[in-house]
């Protein structure tokens, strides 16, 4: 066979018919046209022969044995245990509607937590005051009219006296003038307080608020009865974030965490849905 690289068929349409002609996939009209052209053109006959040879070579390509069987096992077709982090079935089972169920569950969780937070009793003014240590200090400093305490506080400049502690001392002193401690006693108290390790302002109020009334009330037995105002002042002092059960930051923290978890689940689910 001689293969002409540049045959010159009569028309491109006739050349297009060569391939289906080899497969007997031409109509009678096309066959007649092509066979007529073949009798007229040697080049077209050569092209037909070259195509016929090409097809024969391609047909002779050997079959290749598969390197392994491609049968599937139950493990291949079972749902995968490990899925992407954004796939709902990993979190909420494998049922077809698990995605919707998961979304609804997470949404309800978020709504429930928001409702729980909104319906929290946010307490009275004392709790609000206690939420802001600076305003507490201002308010207490207005109430405190006792002069010796600030003076004594100046003697220990490295250690700041807690406002709650200051109030306790002042209240106790005002309530029981006879039980007012002497200046050396106050010095001892301040030094004792100064000897304690430094703590953040928010954490320092609670332990110190409880200790001073005891120390101040101990000197005389008569102080016990006259210390009643001290007890009435205690709610203000104990309304710190770490001491009152009604204070929202402490109580609502688990709710906030649960809410955040629900929110994260919801966002992850939405992302997974969008991804699909």
């Amino acid at each position: 066979m001689t293969m002409n690289p540049n045959p010159q068929p009569n028309t491109a349409q006739v050349r297009e018919l060569l391939s289906p002609y080899l497969d007997s996939e031409v109509t009678e009209t096309e066959r007649s046209l092509l066979e007529h052209e073949l009798t007229q053109s040697v080049e077209l006959r050569q092209e037909l022969e070259s195509l016929r040879q090409t097809v024969a070579w391609l047909a002779s390509l050997p079959k290749v044995a598969a390197p392994r069987p491609f049968t599937l096992s139950e493990a291949d077709v079972s749902p995968r245990q490990k899925k992407g982090y954004f796939d709902w079935p990993l979190w909420f089972g494998r049922c077809p509607h698990s995605g919707i169920k998961g979304m609804v569950t997470a949404s309800l969780l978020v709504i429930a937590v928001i409702m729980a937070i909104l319906t929290q009793p946010f307490g009275n003014n004392s709790s609000e005051v206690a939420m802001d240590p600076q305003s507490t200090q201002v308010a207490l400093s207005n109430q405190a009219e006792d002069k010796p305490a600030p003076e004594l506080a100046k003697q220990s400049p490295k250690k700041e006296v807690s406002p709650e502690t200051k109030l306790t001392q002042d209240e106790a002193i005002k309530a029981t003038p006879s039980a007012q401690p002497t200046i050396p006693e106050k010095k001892e108290l301040i030094l004792e307080m100064a000897a304690q390790p430094a703590e953040p302002p928010t954490a320092r109020g609670a332990p110190l608020a409880k200790a001073p009334p005891v120390n101040l009330a101990e000197p005389t037995a008569t102080n016990t009865a006259t210390l009643t105002p001290t007890v009435t002042a205690t709610p203000q002092l104990t309304a710190t974030p770490s001491s009152s059960p009604e204070i929202s930051p402490t109580t609502s923290l688990p709710w906030v965490i649960i809410g955040l978890i629900g929110l994260v689940i919801l966002v992850v689910g939405i992302l997974g849905w969008v991804k699909k």
Partner: peptide, 19 residues
């Protein structure tokens, strides 16, 4: 038909280029 025809012509031409 048309794709197969073009493919066969291309293969034939390739073989001729590597006689």
């Amino acid at each position: 038909k048309s794709r197969l025809s073009r493919a066969r012509h291309r293969v034939r031409d390739f073989l001729l280029e590597h006689k």
